[in-house]
C-alpha cells in the first residue's frame, strides 16, 4: 500500500480522534456523570474522573501524533509496534461495545451506538493497515 495513502489515513484518524476527545466531554454532560456519581463515595468519584482523564490524554496524544507526525507511525520498528498496539486497542473497543455495554441502552441510542461502532472499526482498520503495510 502506498505510504502516502497511509499517511493521509492516519491524518484522517487524527481528526476522528480529536472528535472523540470532544465527544468525551459531551458524553459527560449527556450521560450526567456528575449527577450519577454524586451519591457515590469520594474515592469512587475521584478514580472515575482520573481514569477518564488518562484515557482522554492517550487519545489526545495519539491525535497529535497522527495529525502532526504520521510518518513516525510508519517508519518501522517502534512505529510498527505503536500502530499494532493501537490497532489492538481499538479492536478491543469494538468488542467492548458489542459485548459489554448495556444492550437496552444501546438499543435506545441505536444511532450513536452504530456511529461509534463505525468510528472504532475505522480506527482499528487504519492502525492495523499501518502495522501490516510498512
Amino acid at each position: 500500500m502506498n505510504t502516502l495513502y497511509l499517511e493521509m489515513g492516519l491524518r484522517g484518524t487524527g481528526v476522528i480522534l480529536l472528535g472523540l476527545v470532544l465527544a468525551n466531554f459531551v458524553a459527560a454532560k449527556r450521560l450526567r456523570y456528575a449527577e450519577n456519581l454524586a451519591g457515590s463515595e469520594v474515592m469512587v468519584r475521584q478514580i472515575f474522573y482520573v481514569h477518564c482523564a488518562y484515557i482522554i490524554s492517550i487519545i489526545s496524544g495519539l491525535a497529535l501524533l497522527c495529525l502532526g507526525w504520521p510518518q513516525l507511525l510508519l517508519e518501522g520498528g517502534m512505529g510498527q509496534v505503536l500502530s499494532g498496539f493501537f490497532g489492538l486497542f481499538w479492536a478491543s473497543r469494538v468488542v467492548v461495545q458489542l459485548t459489554y455495554y448495556d444492550k437496552e441502552l444501546r438499543r435506545r441510542e441505536r444511532g450513536w451506538d452504530v456511529f461509534f461502532l463505525l468510528v472504532f472499526v475505522v480506527l482499528c482498520a487504519v492502525f492495523t493497515l499501518a502495522t501490516i503495510y510498512q
Partner: peptide
C-alpha cells in the same frame, strides 16, 4: 453497586484501558 449500569460499565472499561 450504587451506580447505574452504564456508569459501572464505563468505570470498568476505563480501568481496563488504563
Amino acid at each position: 453497586a450504587g451506580l447505574t449500569p452504564l456508569m459501572r460499565e464505563l468505570w470498568w472499561t476505563y480501568s481496563i484501558y488504563v
